Simulated scan of single mutants.
Amino acid sequence: MHEIGLAEAILEAVEKRAAGRPVRRAKIRAGALLRVVEPSMDLAFQMVTEGTIAEGAAIDMVVTPARLSCRSCGHEAGTLDPLAVCPACGDGDVQMTGGDELVLESIEIAEARDVPGNTRGDRGDSFRST
Results as ranks from 00 to 15, higher is better:
23 V>P: 00
23 V>Y: 02
24 R>T: 05
25 R>N: 13
26 A>I: 01
26 A>F: 05
27 K>S: 05
28 I>E: 08
28 I>W: 05
30 A>N: 00
31 G>S: 12
33 L>E: 00
34 L>R: 08
35 R>V: 10
36 V>Q: 00
36 V>R: 04
37 V>A: 14
40 S>D: 15
40 S>I: 07
41 M>Y: 07
42 D>V: 11
42 D>C: 00
44 A>V: 02
44 A>F: 06
45 F>A: 14
46 Q>R: 14
46 Q>V: 03
50 E>S: 15
50 E>A: 15
51 G>I: 02
51 G>H: 01
51 G>N: 08
52 T>Q: 03
52 T>I: 06
53 I>W: 03
56 G>N: 08
57 A>L: 11
58 A>Q: 15
58 A>R: 09
58 A>K: 10
60 D>Y: 02
60 D>M: 12
60 D>R: 06
61 M>Q: 11
61 M>Y: 02
61 M>N: 01
63 V>N: 03
63 V>C: 08
63 V>Y: 00
65 P>Q: 07
66 A>Q: 08
66 A>S: 12
67 R>Y: 05
68 L>N: 05
69 S>F: 07
69 S>N: 12
70 C>F: 05
71 R>L: 14
71 R>V: 11
72 S>F: 09
72 S>Y: 06
73 C>G: 02
76 E>R: 12
76 E>F: 03
76 E>K: 12
77 A>F: 12
78 G>M: 01
78 G>S: 11
78 G>V: 06
80 L>I: 06
80 L>N: 07
81 D>F: 03
81 D>M: 05
81 D>G: 08
83 L>H: 11
87 P>Y: 13
87 P>R: 06
87 P>S: 01
88 A>L: 11
89 C>R: 01
89 C>M: 07
90 G>D: 11
90 G>W: 09
90 G>Y: 14
91 D>G: 07
92 G>F: 09
93 D>H: 14
94 V>M: 00
95 Q>A: 13
95 Q>D: 15
95 Q>G: 13
97 T>S: 14
98 G>M: 11
100 D>F: 05
100 D>K: 14
104 L>H: 11
104 L>G: 08
104 L>E: 05
106 S>Y: 10
106 S>V: 00
106 S>E: 06
106 S>T: 08
108 E>R: 06
108 E>H: 09
108 E>I: 07
110 A>S: 08
110 A>N: 00
110 A>H: 02
111 E>C: 12
112 A>F: 13
112 A>N: 03
112 A>M: 12
113 R>F: 14
114 D>L: 11
115 V>P: 04
115 V>W: 02
116 P>Y: 01
117 G>M: 03
117 G>D: 07
117 G>E: 05
118 N>L: 12
118 N>I: 04
119 T>L: 15
120 R>M: 13
121 G>Y: 01
122 D>Y: 09
122 D>W: 11
123 R>H: 10
123 R>M: 15
124 G>P: 07
125 D>R: 13
125 D>M: 15
125 D>P: 02
126 S>R: 10
127 F>M: 09
